[in-house]
Write a protein that binds this DNA or RNA. Structure first.
Lengths: 364, 364
DNA sequence: CTGAAAGCGCTTACAG
DNA sequence: CTGAAAGCGCTTACAG
């Protein structure tokens, strides 16, 4: 704020050789800038440098603390060793997307292992759905390739990237053909949970899903329904949808109907789960004493706040978020190197034994 | 994996009428490329375009579906619009540094607001303390400036950056002169907690700090001691150090000594706090019934797992981590623009009323 | 009011 | 084996 009549009007780079360039190295080493480039990028096809020249250049680069400018490198159409990460809907939503953190951890781990840095593109944080979405997504080209994630993604900007052959992969299930993604095998895992219920002797079950058609929710429903059918559970009236606020009445009705187990899902909002557990607590029920309870997905809060009336963890399955992050990085690198064609990976979910499943105890 | 002998060895951009550039628009509108640039970026200082020219250019741009190349734009802007973020000790340690997440959130928010992207440098994730630390830190120059954080940082590489005039700021307290940082005002906040205890009538108090000399711990101790002195609390034997595992015996001794309140601190390991609360639980004590308890700093777990024997949140103060992240980004940008000299900011901590403070209840 | 030129920092043929 | 040149797509003084 202090506009102290500085002689040079805001010099972009304060003073000193804050950011040495190849030309600085060239001068110091007594060679041309092009030679510096050749030495620094390592062995280009056929080109052989005199060992002595090589050494001088490397030495000078080291002395000056040279680091290539990623943007210039990209403009000149080369790799810069950086992978993009673009999250839709407020990149780090303090509230909701804590559920994304494990993915970030996985991405970061694998990127580090592969010697890649990460560019976090922040475009998505502003007013969502703006036309600037397009501009924001475009910036992604500053990286060698990009990872996308988030439930609802703007399709158009992505399609353009795809057409241009820019390498990217989604973290999470996608429907679009020809687009790479790594997701979780919700279908199998959900079916397995249904089978577990049947094995315990349950017959009349309810699946309470969120009222939000994301691929993850669709997959889970399919898994539950298929699994229920396969295991001989009742399937009529099996699936119900909620926004999270209307669970008390349902719960009472279910009890009247003789429902002995309820399955629900965890999403980034956690609405269905919190609605259900709150209703269970208010009804004074305990799990699995009065009702068996299963959850499809990992609860957002890392050290899951113990749910009132529940002895321990909720039974069901966990989503391998960290491993999804890692796998996505590996796939992306293959795509960038051209050693793989666009493809999809579905990772298995880990069953969670938990403490909320037991034999059926019909309602009063 | 499928090496399907593709004719063109992975062409960067497939085919089609390649993206239109400004020169294409220029040709179509019958003006120079520079004029196109002027029109497109809106009003540059003093430059006034003929409305007719403006219209023609805009029209042509529209027709051709022009969108600026973000990479070229950044290169020409002589800034790459990227801020670095470098975390010491495993960038995203799954275990410990969950406490860093709020800082990340703040950094991301402000970066987004300022139209900057973030480069996450992953160098620190490997074997710590390696000589590669230097090399890793050097990479940071790829960004316009950099944010550093973590308790223990390698001094040499940083000094070098400083000498070269590379803009950077620490998140957290630093002792080095001439280096920018934004930290929390632990001294004042800690003193205030001591004063609160005195106001409640406590006289004999203990401060259990971690056995780790980081600036944050030093500041807290100073604040507690100063505050205790100022408020008339006993200061002899006030401070004790722990590694977290030896608290049971102390607790018994304190009770015998007539201690009525204990203050401890939260760090990235959380050792002192968890050691203390565990001891309190094992001793069958409740807070503030048997003992008042205060905490300097925010517990790591976001939805703090309710501590056994404690009614609600622990009294004390919280660290404004998110705001520190935001402030650090703003400072860094000022540094990069040269509109500010290196400087330090200390942010106020928020008092947490909590439920663990009450009037003194001398031990048995 | 607009054009011609230089430059951002790098890569990549192409000559010597 | 290395230098000189052109180019990636834009911005920014500087002349007219």
């Amino acid at each position: 704020m202090s506009e102290t009549a500085s002689p040079p009007p805001t010099p972009p780079r304060p003073n000193g050789r804050a950011k040495p360039r190849q030309s600085d190295i060239a001068r110091a080493a007594g060679v041309s800038q092009a030679t510096v480039s050749l030495v620094l990028r390592g062995a280009t096809t056929g080109v052989v440098l005199a060992p002595e020249t090589r050494r001088r250049v490397l030495r000078a680069a080291e002395d000056l603390g040279y680091v290539p400018d990623p943007v210039a490198t990209r403009l000149a159409a080369a790799r810069n060793g950086m992978l993009g990460l673009y999250t839709f809907s407020t990149t780090f939503p303090t509230d909701v997307a804590h559920s994304y953190y494990p993915v970030l951890v996985g991405v970061e781990e694998e990127a580090a292992a592969q010697g890649q840095d990460l560019i976090l593109f922040t475009g998505a944080s502003r007013a969502a759905g703006t036309t600037s979405d397009a501009a924001a997504v475009r910036r992604v080209r500053a990286a060698d390739g990009c990872l996308f994630f988030g439930r609802h993604v703007p399709e158009d900007p992505i399609r353009r990237l795809s057409e241009d052959g820019f390498p990217f992969v989604y973290i999470g299930r996608r429907e679009e053909p020809g687009i790479s993604h790594v997701g979780a095998d919700y279908v199998s895992a959900s079916a397995e949970v249904a089978a577990r219920l049947a094995a315990l002797g349950h017959h009349r079950v309810r699946y309470l899903r969120e009222n939000d058609d994301a691929p993850a929710s669709t997959d889970r429903e399919r898994g539950v329904v298929d699994g229920a059918r396969g295991a001989g559970l009742e399937t009529v009236g099996l699936v119900e949808r909620t926004d999270g606020g209307d669970v008390d009445a349902r719960l009472a009705r279910w009890r009247d109907e003789g429902v002995t187990a309820v399955v629900t899902e965890e999403t980034d909002t956690g609405a269905a789960l919190s609605g259900l557990t709150a209703a269970v607590a208010r009804a004074g029920l305990s799990c699995p004493g009065d009702l068996s309870l299963a959850l499809l997905g990992t609860p957002a809060a890392a050290p899951a706040a113990p749910v009132t009336g529940l002895a321990g963890a909720i039974s069901g399955f966990g989503v391998p978020m960290r491993e999804m992050g890692r796998a996505a990085v590996r796939l992306l690198l293959d795509l960038i190197e051209g050693s793989a064609a666009p493809q999809s990976h579905l990772l298995a979910c880990e069953p969670v034994a938990g403490a909320t499943l037991g034999p059926p105890h019909p309602g009063r």
